[in-house]
Design a protein around this nucleic acid. Structure first.
Length: 275
DNA sequence: CCTTGAACCTGCGGGC
DNA sequence: TGCCCGCAGGTTCAAG
């Protein structure tokens, strides 16, 4: 679920609930997340007021009036659920934030690959989890020229390159597959073999795929935030991801989608129309 | 320096 | 029904 569009959607859903609210209390039910929560975690957050919400890469950043910022990463299976009044805890509800208005934000994460951390707001960019992040794909700085320059010397498969969070953030396994399909580029191509035109096409494809997914997530925001935290409806628009063996939507009946493994992850593509 | 692969953890679906 | 296997949207760290 959580690549850039999903994190953006969660952040947007959370913003109206959290903005300006004061946190009454924080209950840590499981501190063994990807990084163990420090003993002071709940204490630092209690009584603080939320002054802002934004997204950086796949992190949600919650700024507080006590000089700290809460960093949230959803890992593979993390969700943030909103209850308008206190609700009984469910399995894998690891952290429960209760607001002064009695609403609750619940961090639920079966696999515990998610992360929560506190950082000084003044020095956020230097925090160790954020320091090495690359450019935002939807910003101007992610351009064809930038991508070309980054790929120029790399012999990695292009799919692994665009998933490298030090190069460009937010692109995970699904959107890497979808963007490469949209750009007609074979995921196995060595990064340095992409020409100028291909870098332009791929840059645009990444931006377009992410924006369209955000739009879809946004349209299902109400349901999303209410109960499940499930992915929006963009999954119904995957052209290749999870579709191995199905006819390629571009070649029509002539070729089927392949599944291969790259960097330990499944890659889906059409060997016929992705060169 | 670079690339690859395993590890972290739980749940689910398929095959037998 | 139960067991075993492979698989899952991410990141980090060790080994080669």
């Amino acid at each position: 679920m959580p690549e850039l569009p999903e994190v953006e959607t969660v952040m947007r859903g959370l913003a109206p609930v959290l903005m300006g609210q004061r946190i009454k209390s924080v209950r840590v039910r499981q501190r063994q997340l990807r990084v163990p929560l420090p003993a002071t975690f709940a204490r630092t957050l209690a009584k603080a007021r939320v002054t802002g919400l934004k997204r950086r890469a796949k992190y949600i950043l919650v700024s507080l009036d006590n000089g700290k910022t809460l960093l949230i990463h959803l890992g593979m299976s993390g969700r943030l659920l909103i209850h308008t009044k206190p609700a009984p805890a469910q399995k894998h509800d690891h952290v429960v934030f209760t607001l002064n208005n009695h609403a609750q934000i619940v961090f639920n994460d079966p696999r515990r690959f998610g992360l929560m951390a506190l950082a000084p707001s003044g020095d956020l960019a230097n925090h160790k989890t954020l320091r090495h992040l690359g450019v935002e794909p939807l910003e101007k700085e992610f351009s064809a020229a930038y991508l070309r320059d980054q790929l120029r010397t790399s012999s990695r498969p292009v799919k692994l390159a665009i998933m490298d969070q030090e190069l460009v953030v937010g692109v995970g396994n699904i959107y890497a597959c979808e963007a490469l399909f949209a750009a007609h580029i074979n995921p196995n191509r060595k990064a340095r073999t992409l020409g100028d035109a291909e870098c332009r096409t791929l840059t645009q494809a990444i931006k377009t795929v992410l924006k369209r997914a955000i739009k879809k997530g946004g349209s299902s925001l109400r349901d999303y935030v209410q109960a499940s935290g499930e992915a929006g409806y963009f999954q119904h628009e995957f052209k290749v991801y999870g579709h191995s063996g199905h006819p390629c939507p571009r070649c029509k009946g002539r070729h089927t989608i392949s599944r291969i493994t790259q960097g330990g992850r499944s890659t889906f593509f059409c060997a016929s129309c992705q060169k």
